[in-house]
Write a protein that binds this DNA or RNA. Sequence first.
DNA 1: ATAGAAGCGGAGGAATTCACTCCGCTTTGT
DNA 2: ACAAAGCGGAGTGAATTCCTCCGCTTCTAT
Lengths: 218, 218
Amino acid sequence: MADDPKDQRPLRADARRNRERILDAAAVVFARDGLEASLDAVAAEAGVGVGTVYRRFPEREMLVTELFTAKIDSFVELAEECAAMEDPWQGLVRFLSEASRRQGEDLAFREIVLGPGATSEMMDMPRQRLAPIVGRMIEGAKANGDLREDFDVLDVPLVEIMLARLNDLTGRVSADLWRRMLTVVIDGLRRDRDQATPMPVDPIRPLDYAAAITNARR
Amino acid sequence: MADDPKDQRPLRADARRNRERILDAAAVVFARDGLEASLDAVAAEAGVGVGTVYRRFPEREMLVTELFTAKIDSFVELAEECAAMEDPWQGLVRFLSEASRRQGEDLAFREIVLGPGATSEMMDMPRQRLAPIVGRMIEGAKANGDLREDFDVLDVPLVEIMLARLNDLTGRVSADLWRRMLTVVIDGLRRDRDQATPMPVDPIRPLDYAAAITNARR
DNA sequence: ATAGAAGCGGAGGAATTCACTCCGCTTTGT
DNA sequence: ACAAAGCGGAGTGAATTCCTCCGCTTCTAT
């Protein structure tokens, strides 16, 4: 094992600058187009040549890893924080809300967290890290009598998928609209309740709806 | 206006046969791939040459119109039936359930009903036909004190989008899974309630979840 | 200041995918 | 049995994507 070929020489100043620009651009493009985003699109967004992208990140995997490792860890942390909250129901509510927000904002992130999007070994199976934590939240909330008994751990990603999808379509036009449906879902998750929780956002307006659906990508 | 060039001569027997095969195939392919489905894929599914498809349906629009006009009318009828039900809340529940099912089963249909997918004038704006009918349902259910006051007509397509999306991902593996979330949403729509409605389907099993997400298209 | 290493842009090759045409052969109806 | 109608699918052209290559530019160390 002679000298490791990575990190041998520090990058030249302009190269370091470009590397940052590529990462920033990739964050935007991957969030918009998902894990299959074209690297040509990243180059364009970054304002550099495609060659530069491929020189710095010969494998798409490197770019993905660099971009999402921290984000995933922070997501697991979020789950842990929520699971540690005093009131398990409040923890679950906060988790569903924050998780849906983060996933709604970043398509690639969603593909990684919800599916086996990243085939990498590095950040493998965020789901497997999350399942036990979310499981604790759910058991706690059921034990307290707040959460309906028939709710299951694997319903959590379903909620996230639904709400994130909503944000895909309407986010440009009404950034928080998905929270209306989050409110409905959360009210639906309670074992029993008197009043409905007021929705935190106004309904979408007809013209905005039309615009949202028209410009929808796929 | 001499003789109209359409329906001039009856199709030859083999042509009529192939036309049917193409329509059947197109139903499958459009349901799966949406309105942008490749006509080559339709030909393959039908087991005919692409030439045959283009000869019979020179404009994609013709194929779409032929396939979906009846389906759309039947959908509007559904809404009318539901709006006419004695108990407005039950009508709304039935509509949400049946609408989500139909849209979950057919991606192209969903694109037409929810968005301005069909640019055609023939079946134009199913939304505009639906809005007043659905509006009546909602007002009725609110007046009866069953539906939460802050629910809006334009929240209805949002519910449909969410649930149909769920079925896109999980339908192959667990055909009725989306009904779990429908139950949650419906419970969330009640103004107040004691018990949660029991979910009508078992949770997805971990291996099925993995399979569903792995094979997900797009 | 300058030589040489490091880095850059982006044209362009190869592969894929889709819409749509064309024409030699086959099937049908009379 | 023969003309008209229909058929298949190879093939053209236009996009789109990945990725390489190489002449030119910029940086850094001396």
